[in-house]
Each structure stands twice: as structure tokens, then as C-alpha cells.
């Protein structure tokens, strides 16, 4: 398959500081690529280079099979984006803002499309209200409408849930999932939240200190990783002995108060609980923590 985006050896220097170091990756049609990394990892800088907001120091960016630098306007006409928090002209209404951005599109965008998008992001009734009075969540949703104005083939969303309250996070995530399911668009999404990437993306690039550390299918990384299972029981010592006498004897089983912990796979949890119950042990709580988080933390802390 021909990649929609092909980035090779991307470097960005700010004076003596190398913000992005030899980053290479591909994005294929229909992909939802997660850009994962802690704050300051180089995610935004890389995405800004994909939108020609920042000039790379080195490297090449091919989008839709064309070089970005020499085909900037043609490529941007097929991209929609939100970079960091979406900012609008506060003294204009939501509709006027969208009309303004629509006028910069090479193709005519009818007002019916603007109404349709305002409805899509749940701002249909607030279209004639000034953006100055909008909450951060509403601006984020308006940002999504702005990104979709030209019906883009590629959508770039940089930390779209940052700064939102829990309700706002849920709303924006639902909108992105809706977009993915209903339109099958190619999306590049950056986030410092692993759970967000797991929920939305099918492929991931993990960045830290400007370097791409790992890239691949999210499912592969998730399946390959173990779970750390914590089980609260009435008798921790008895539970530990029961498991050590079972086929889990090879696992390291830790005991802390009345809680046992062991590394295992998701499929093995019912069997473990069955062994405990067969030995007359009462189970009060089961908690599993994906080791991908540990893996991510280990990668990024190094």
C-alpha cells in the first residue's frame, strides 16, 4: 500500500537545541495514527512541520505522494487540523469564523456545509453566538468543525483533549470516534495519554526527547504486553500458596497485606480466580494494570 504520509529523517533545530531528531514514519490511508509521548517529546513540532508551520532543518515530508515544501497549498487543501488549542476570532460568531476560514478554501464551501458541521459538533444552536463567550470545550468542538470544512482526506489533531474537563474529553473523543467510524478518514492524533491512543488509534509512534522510539500496530503492542493483576482476598497467604501449587507456580506471586499480585495475560484471569474460589478464598476486588503503560513509562523515562 502506498503511504499517504511519508516522513524521512525529520530534524528540527532551535539554535543548539535539537527538538526533533531523525524522525521517520508512514501513515497509510484509513489509519488512525497515534503520536504518543510526554510533554516536550517533539509531537507538536513534528505535526507543525507536517503542516508547514515550521520549516524542517533536515529531512523530507511527502504527503499524498508529493513533496510538502514544493506543493504546500495543493497538499494543505486536502488537510484539516487542530494544532494545540483551537483559537478563533473572538469578536466573530462561530458561523462567521467558519465562513471566514471557508473563504480560504480553493473550492466553494456552501453555507449548508457550515450548518451541517455546526450540527455535527453539537453547536447548531450556538452558530450565531460570539466565540468570545464559548467554553474551551465548545471551542475545541468548533475547532473540529473548522478542521472538517474542506472535507479533508487527512486530519491532524494535536492534543485535542488537552485542557478539557472530563465531560469535554468524552465529547471530543466521541466526535473523533464518530469521524473515524462514519467517514473512514485518515487521522493523525497526538496525545500524552496512552488510554486515549489505545481507544482511538490503530497505529502508534512513541516519541520521547525528539526521537521516535517505537512504532507499530496498537493491538500488537497491547497484546504483546502483560497485565499486572492485583487481587484483594480474605486470606493472602492461603491465596499465594494455592497459586504456587497450581500451574502458575512459575509466576512471581507477590503478597502485600491481603492483596496478591502477579503478571499474567487477560485470558488467564478467570482461571486464576477459579483456583482461588476452589480453595475457599473470598475475592473482594480484582484490578488489572496493562504493562503497556509500564513499557511506555520505561521507554520515556530512559
Amino acid at each position: 500500500m502506498i503511504p499517504l504520509v511519508e516522513v524521512q529523517g525529520l530534524v528540527k533545530d532551535y539554535g543548539s537545541l535539537r527538538a526533533v531528531q531523525e524522525v521517520s514514519f508512514e501513515v497509510y490511508p484509513g489509519d488512525v495514527l497515534g503520536f504518543l509521548g510526554p510533554n516536550g517529546a517533539g509531537k507538536s513540532t513534528t505535526l507543525r512541520m507536517l503542516l508547514s508551520l515550521i520549516r524542517p532543518t533536515q529531512g523530507s515530508i511527502q504527503i499524498f505522494g508529493k513533496d510538502l515544501i514544493s506543493n504546500r497549498t495543493a497538499i494543505l487543501s486536502k488537510i484539516g487540523c487542530i494544532i494545540e488549542k483551537p483559537d478563533f476570532y473572538k469578536y466573530l460568531t462561530a458561523r462567521q469564523n467558519l465562513q471566514l476560514f471557508a473563504r480560504w478554501s480553493p473550492t466553494h464551501i456552501p453555507s449548508s456545509r457550515i450548518s451541517e458541521l455546526l450540527d455535527f459538533v453539537g453547536l447548531g444552536s450556538r452558530g450565531n453566538h460570539r466565540v468570545g463567550g464559548f467554553s474551551h470545550g465548545m471551542r475545541q468542538r468548533l475547532g473540529l468543525a473548522q478542521a472538517l470544512l474542506n472535507n479533508p482526506d487527512l486530519i491532524i489533531l494535536d492534543e485535542p483533549t488537552t485542557g478539557l474537563d472530563p465531560q469535554g474529553i468524552i465529547e471530543v473523543r466521541e466526535l473523533i470516534l464518530k469521524l473515524k467510524q462514519e467517514t473512514n478518514k485518515t487521522i493523525i492524533l497526538s496525545s500524552h495519554l496512552l488510554s486515549e491512543i489505545e481507544l482511538i488509534a490503530n497505529r502508534v509512534v512513541i516519541l520521547n526527547k525528539g526521537k521516535a522510539l517505537v512504532q507499530g500496530e496498537v493491538s500488537e503492542l497491547v497484546n504483546a504486553s502483560e497485565l499486572l493483576v492485583s487481587i484483594q482476598v480474605d486470606n493472602g497467604l492461603k491465596a499465594q500458596e494455592a497459586l504456587q501449587q497450581s500451574r502458575f507456580s512459575g509466576h512471581e506471586i507477590l503478597l502485600s497485606n491481603q492483596e496478591i499480585q502477579l503478571k499474567t495475560s487477560r485470558q488467564e484471569i478467570p482461571e486464576i480466580l477459579g483456583i482461588l474460589m476452589d480453595n475457599g478464598i473470598s475475592i473482594y476486588a480484582v484490578e488489572s494494570k496493562r504493562k503497556l503503560e509500564d513499557y511506555f513509562l520505561k521507554l520515556t523515562s530512559n
Binding site: T73, F101, W104
Partner: peptide, 14 residues
């Protein structure tokens, strides 16, 4: 300063 230049510059305008 307002942040709108960022959005404006991602539009397909030279």
C-alpha cells in the same frame, strides 16, 4: 498572540 495565525497558516493559501 491570539493563536489564529496558526489556524490561518494551515489553510491552502500562499
Amino acid at each position: 498572540a491570539m493563536g489564529t495565525l496558526r489556524t490561518l497558516m494551515t489553510k491552502p493559501v500562499p
